[in-house]
Computed example of a mutant assay.
Amino acid sequence: MKIHLILFASSDTEQKSAAMVKSFDSDIRPVQGDIIDDPGFDAGFHNGYEVVKVTINYESEECLVSLSPLAIEVQEIKLETYVEKLLTYGWRELSNQEFAQ
């Protein structure tokens, strides 16, 4: 099954936000309450994200996994820096068109 991890990050002080996604094939399907770890998550700021919602489409064999949002003000890192780190580890930013679907 194709798994799509979705992470929302925002910064009120910077007036910016980003919706990030990382996709991969897996036989393991996350469930609400699981903690997802990824090398793109900076251990100094966040060492895992809780799964808050799972949506399964059996017809397309896809699973959308929404992770708890990240509020940058709580962390000591700029949004742009965090997004760059995620991009380095295979995440990509969702386009406005993808986000609207």
Rank of each mutant, 00 (worst) to 15 (best):
L94R: 07
V21N: 02
G40C: 08
E76V: 06
V65F: 08
E98M: 11
T88C: 12
I36P: 06
S66K: 12
D42E: 10
E93S: 12
A100R: 05
F8H: 12
N57F: 14
E14W: 13
R92I: 06
S95C: 06
S60M: 10
V74N: 13
V51A: 09
H4N: 14
E14L: 15
A71G: 10
Y82P: 00
V21D: 01
V52K: 11
S95D: 03
L79F: 04
E59H: 13
F24W: 02
V51P: 06
V31L: 09
D37I: 12
K22Q: 06
K53S: 14
Y58C: 09
S26T: 04
L67Y: 07
L79Q: 01
G90N: 03
E61K: 15
G44V: 06
V21F: 05
T88H: 12
A9R: 00
L70P: 00
F45S: 05
K22P: 01
K16G: 05
F99P: 00
I77V: 15
S95W: 00
S10A: 14
P39Q: 07
Q97P: 00
L86K: 01
I36K: 02
S17N: 14
M1L: 09
S60G: 02
D37G: 10
I35S: 06
S95F: 03
Q75K: 14
E80Q: 13
F41A: 03
G33W: 04
Y49P: 00
E50C: 09
I36M: 14
A19G: 00
A19R: 03
V51E: 03
A43E: 09
L94M: 15
E61D: 13
I3C: 03
A71C: 08
A18C: 08
I6T: 04
T88N: 11
D12A: 13
E73I: 09
D38Y: 04
K78G: 09
Q101S: 11
L64N: 07
L70H: 02
M1W: 03
E62Q: 14
Q101H: 10
G40E: 04
E73P: 08
G33L: 07
A71I: 11
E50Q: 13
E93T: 10
V31N: 10
A9Q: 09
W91T: 01
P30I: 05
I77D: 02
V51F: 11
L87Q: 03
H46D: 13
S26Y: 06
K85R: 15
D12V: 08
R92F: 14
A18P: 00
Q101C: 09
P69C: 11
H46I: 15
Q75P: 01
T55P: 00
G33E: 05
D38M: 06
V52W: 01
D42A: 11
D42H: 08
I72S: 02
E93Y: 01
N47E: 12
P39Y: 04
K16T: 09
K16I: 05
S17L: 12
I36T: 04
K2F: 08
Y89G: 08
V21R: 04
E76N: 15
A19S: 10
A71P: 03
V65M: 04
Y49A: 11
A9W: 00
F45K: 02
R92Y: 15
G90P: 04
Y82C: 01
I35Q: 07
I3E: 02
M20W: 05
E98R: 03
E73K: 09
S10H: 15
I3Y: 06
F45N: 04
K78N: 09
D25M: 10
V83Q: 03
E84S: 15
F45W: 10
E61H: 13
